[in-house]
Write a protein that binds this DNA or RNA. Structure first.
Ligand SMILES: [Mn+2]
Ligand SMILES: [Mn+2]
Ligand SMILES: [Zn+2]
Ligand SMILES: [Zn+2]
Lengths: 138, 138
DNA sequence: CCTAGAATTGGAATGATTCCAGATATCAAG
DNA sequence: CTTGATATCTGGAATCATTCCAATTCTAGG
């Protein structure tokens, strides 16, 4: 985890009034090092390689904290285990139904704004999720 | 359930090589009579009022069958219990985070096509989901 | 250096969904 | 109208991601 990333973690936690802990650093670095939308269980096993004593409960706690801080997004597809994504740019997700892998799809600049405009006035959006699924060729 | 709806059920089941049963009729009519995106549990209790002996397992089975036939869509928001929607027109969903209620949002004609176009070629979409959440003003 | 409050931990609890095996019903064929 | 092959239904057990809990340890401000 580079200095810049370390600082965004520290800063995001500070803004949210949360403490910096070795477990949070380890879990966050796991997310940044391999951005393949891992499940909690995958994050757990990867984190254990760096910090053998870490518990599953703590991994759940850390991920929840990061989501609360806006450092990480949850990615859900149907009822599958929740995945986590540290990409903060506006993007959609594509799930390959053959491999289960999830890909980031960048959104053109106006897309989110365009989408929000289809909502009648009484709906005050806080978040929009766009997800595709299908097969990825080749 | 009107004659037209009854026929689309019969026809959809026939196309998929499935049998027409009293339980399937009851569950389908429950979905059509109150289109408020009920959870399985809600569908279960509503169906029991019409057919007291029906089991929860059967409600799960019927709903899965309808989804397979294309008669009904599953609606998932985060990890909440799955909801069911018999609206076959292209639409998005808005979840009011204060009440938990889910609303249908009609999509303009070109919207889905526009969205598919943001995908690089190698992604062969089978389905697109758009979901909003936030507060619904009064 | 101290200490109050926050975070971590292992294990138990939860709850939506899925699985199972025996009983029952549908419907195509005769 | 019968019959039989299958599909469906049912109650209860099993699954498993996630949440909860109470005891222990740690962080960070004073
Ligand atoms: Mn949210
Ligand atoms: Mn699908
Ligand atoms: Zn992503
Ligand atoms: Zn709907």
């Amino acid at each position: 985890m580079g200095k810049h990333d370390h600082e965004s973690l520290t800063e995001a936690l500070r803004r949210a009034g949360q403490k910096l802990t070795p477990q949070r650093e380890a879990v966050y670095s796991v997310l940044l090092d391999k951005r393949d939308h891992p499940t909690v269980d995958e994050v757990f096993h990867r984190t254990r390689e760096r910090m053998p004593g870490v518990s599953l409960a703590t991994v759940y706690n850390c991920l929840e904290t990061f989501v609360g801080c806006g450092l990480v997004r949850q990615v859900n597809h149907e009822r599958e285990p929740t995945r986590y994504c540290p990409n903060l740019a506006p993007h959609a997700h594509f799930r390959d139904q053959e491999t289960g892998r999830v890909y980031d799809i960048d959104l053109p600049p106006r897309m989110l704004e365009t989408l929000r405009r289809i909502l009648p006035e009484e709906f005050q959006t806080e978040a929009v999720e766009i997800s595709f699924h299908g097969k990825r060729r080749r």
